[in-house]
Design a protein around this nucleic acid. Structure first.
Length: 154
DNA sequence: GACGACTTGTTAT
DNA sequence: ATAACAAGTCGTC
């Protein structure tokens, strides 16, 4: 665990690392004991703090360790390439990966590493879609990134 | 447009 | 084997 970040909208963000790789990110109501050990963990903490201040951060430089099925991994790998402030629909991803929108949603639900793997940048065709930690967090993340064309849905 | 039924691929039990 | 799902599309009214 590297950090329980306190975010303005009353959530803590806990990041778990192992061998310099991110293995899990979770949102929690209460902070967990903070343990920062490696240099990359320190950097990641600073990047997250900047991110939540509304600064554009690219998390692609951090290694992640995914213990998920090959299909889920392929979806998550694609999602990692979506740039800051942009959104893609489940259907578009399904078309590119030759699968169904529903399967994409399932894969995203299994994402162990939100924010760093920006699953909040995937929305449904007419609406916001879901988010495992609560859609309101997804909404806040998109607002934070200044994703404007969804303003009617926010 | 709003609503429902049919489709769809993957995971969980 | 089958139910459940973070979706989409096509039909009816």
């Amino acid at each position: 665990m590297i950090e329980s970040l306190s975010v303005d909208w009353k959530v803590f963000v806990n990041v778990y690392m192992e061998n310099g790789k991110v293995i899990k990110v979770e949102f929690s109501k209460y902070p967990v004991e903070e343990v920062v050990l490696s240099e990359t963990a320190e950097n990641l903490k600073k990047d997250l703090e900047r991110y939540f201040r509304g600064i554009k951060v690219d998390f692609r430089k951090y290694d992640v360790h995914l213990s998920v099925s090959p299909f889920v991994k392929s979806v998550l790998d694609f999602v990692r390439t979506i740039p800051y402030g942009k959104v893609v629909t489940y259907g578009q991803i399904a078309k590119i990966l030759n699968t169904s929108p529903r399967a994409v949603g399932m894969a995203l639900r299994l994402n162990p590493i939100p924010i760093i793997i920006p699953c909040h940048r995937v929305v449904s065709k007419n609406g916001l879609g879901g988010f495992s930690a609560g859609v309101w967090i997804k909404r806040e993340l998109l607002r934070l990134e200044g994703t404007t064309f969804l303003s009617q849905l926010l």
